[in-house]
């Protein structure tokens, strides 16, 4: 079995700071492998351990951090890693990433499974998996919270607004995973040391024959609704805290 895992370098949103005018200081924010992408890597490694799959990991970008996350994936057990070098990787349209993956699969595939995180922390569009599915012509199962494979059929559960969906199909498949899917392993010192010696392969867009299309971003601003921020310490005065909530409910006519 051959598995391709896609990982994205994403801004660690929880550590984002802002300029006075509310524009985010993205350049100085720390970057990391997307949380759900890490779950995709973990799932691939588990399949490798059970079924002897070979696991390839792919990312798009051109920074040292991109090399770092490939090595993070090596330390988890991935066999081979590629970076597709694009300077303005943050502005690539999702459909271009789809073209890149398609060209990469034509060059190095075919793959039985293409695994990726359902949504990234920074743009959380939850669409890349299905774009790839369309472009390559392999069916998709998206936003998977729990995955199992018996050697011939993949069974995947996905929690959605109206209930729990259970999808079943044989590979080849594109599967996107949420952070509920598993608990990614912590690499050992030994695997970290080994990962440092492994080669990270690099390809340029021209080598894949992909013409990039970019998103035109005009402005990014902090999204915030100003609130009154009245603080009441219930530890000090439980009565007052309860009275406050009660009187607001009453004022809005919501107490029966």
């Amino acid at each position: 079995m051959k598995i391709l895992t896609l990982i994205k370098l994403t801004v660690d949103v929880s550590q984002l700071k802002y300029e006075k005018d509310g524009s985010p200081l993205v350049e100085i924010a720390p970057n990391k492998m997307g949380d759900s992408d890490k779950c995709a890597v973990e799932e691939a490694i588990r399949l490798k351990e059970r079924y002897g799959a070979s696991v390839t990991v792919l990312t798009v970008g051109a920074t040292r951090d991109h090399e770092r996350i490939i090595r993070d994936a090596y330390a988890m057990g991935v066999d081979e890693g590629y970076i597709i070098e694009v300077e303005e990787y943050q502005k690539l349209q999702a459909t271009t990433i789809g073209d890149i993956v398609k060209a990469f699969v034509e060059k190095t595939g075919p793959y039985d499974l293409i695994l990726l995180g359902a949504g990234s922390l920074d743009t959380h569009s939850y669409t890349l998996g299905s774009i790839i599915s369309s472009k390559i012509g392999i069916p998709i199962i998206s936003s998977v919270d729990s995955l199992s494979y018996n050697g011939s059929i993949v069974k995947a559960e996905s929690v959605m607004e109206d209930g729990v969906y259970v999808f079943q199909a044989p590979p080849p498949l594109v599967i996107t995973l949420t952070t509920e899917a598993n608990e990614p392993r912590i690499p050992t010192l030994k695997t970290i040391l080994k990962s440092k010696k492994m080669e990270v392969k690099k390809l340029r867009l021209e080598e894949l024959g992909v013409k990039p299309r970019y998103v035109t971003i005009e402005d990014v601003r902090k999204y915030f609704v100003e609130r009154k921020k009245i603080i009441i310490d219930a530890g000090e005065d439980l009565e007052k805290a309860v009275e406050t909530i009660y009187s607001i409910l009453k004022m809005e006519g919501l107490v029966k």
């Binding site: 459909t95 890349l128 774009i131 936003s143």
Partner: peptide, 16 residues
């Protein structure tokens, strides 16, 4: 998910 399949098939930009 459907929109991604749709935009991928039509090769047009998709914004969420």
């Amino acid at each position: 998910t459907i929109a991604g399949l749709y935009a991928g098939a039509r090769d047009e930009s998709i914004i969420t």
